[in-house]
Amino acid sequence: MRRTEALKIITRALKQPVEDVPAADLIYGRSLAHIESPSPETPQPWAIQVDVLALRIAAQLPLSDDTEQQSPLAQAEDAKRRRNIDDEIAALTGAHDQLTSAPWYPARPGDLVHIHYEQAGDLPPFGETYIVGDAGDNMMSLQLLAHTLPETVPGMDAEATAEMAGIFAVEILDCPLYQAWFEAGPQRLTIVRDGRPVHIGGAG
């Protein structure tokens, strides 16, 4: 099932979980801590928009078909070729919302970003590791630390091969992950913060 379709199904179910009740745009709740671990402190109520919660649930679903292995940009370009403006917009806005609603967003200086690339023709699978840096004035950089791209690839000269490494490095940007998130795709990114993975691409 495509994640966009799953998102629609989840949203409908959250808006109206049972028949003959008004559809809801907000979900209200209360922490279960007061049930499992009684405490003198009363847990604070919480509320969340239905579409935001649905997006977070859908983002955790495993990737299950070839379409979902495409990056958001590739999905948008595919939809554009099919002249389907709705799918094109959904691919881009969905990826934007998935990134900016992630609990670890925004990136922080010191974050490590690993990008995995599958085999493509004669080009074997390889990976790149970047580090987020502080560029000043609330801006950040993305610097290439290492890569496993072979020095020689059949059918490509050494210069062309070398230029493929570090294509997502940026000197100064407010969101240094944006380009990699859209062009490589979140399913190919693994992000580590303070020694712990906060986003594992393709998990599940």
Rank of each mutant, 00 (worst) to 15 (best):
E163H: 08
G110W: 09
S64G: 11
A102K: 03
G127T: 15
W104Q: 08
S31D: 12
T93A: 10
G110V: 11
D194W: 04
S37E: 13
I57C: 02
D66W: 08
P17K: 04
A135D: 05
R83C: 10
E41V: 11
R82C: 06
R193M: 06
T67Y: 14
D97N: 15
I35T: 13
D157H: 09
Q49F: 09
Q16W: 00
T152S: 08
A59D: 15
P38I: 11
D111M: 06
Y178T: 00
P40T: 01
L14D: 06
Q69R: 15
R12G: 00
V153R: 00
L14S: 05
H34P: 00
P154I: 13
G195P: 00
E163T: 07
I57Q: 03
E41D: 11
T190A: 12
A76D: 11
R2E: 13
P106G: 01
L61S: 02
D51G: 01
A91V: 06
A76E: 01
C175P: 00
R56I: 05
N84V: 01
P109D: 01
G127D: 14
D51S: 05
A59I: 02
T67S: 13
A59N: 14
L73Y: 09
K80V: 06
Q69F: 11
P197K: 04
Q69A: 10
A160T: 12
S101V: 00
G133E: 10
A158D: 15
L112C: 08
A107Q: 09
R83G: 08
V113I: 09
I27E: 08
A74D: 14
D174T: 04
L99Q: 14
A13W: 00
Y130K: 03
M139C: 07
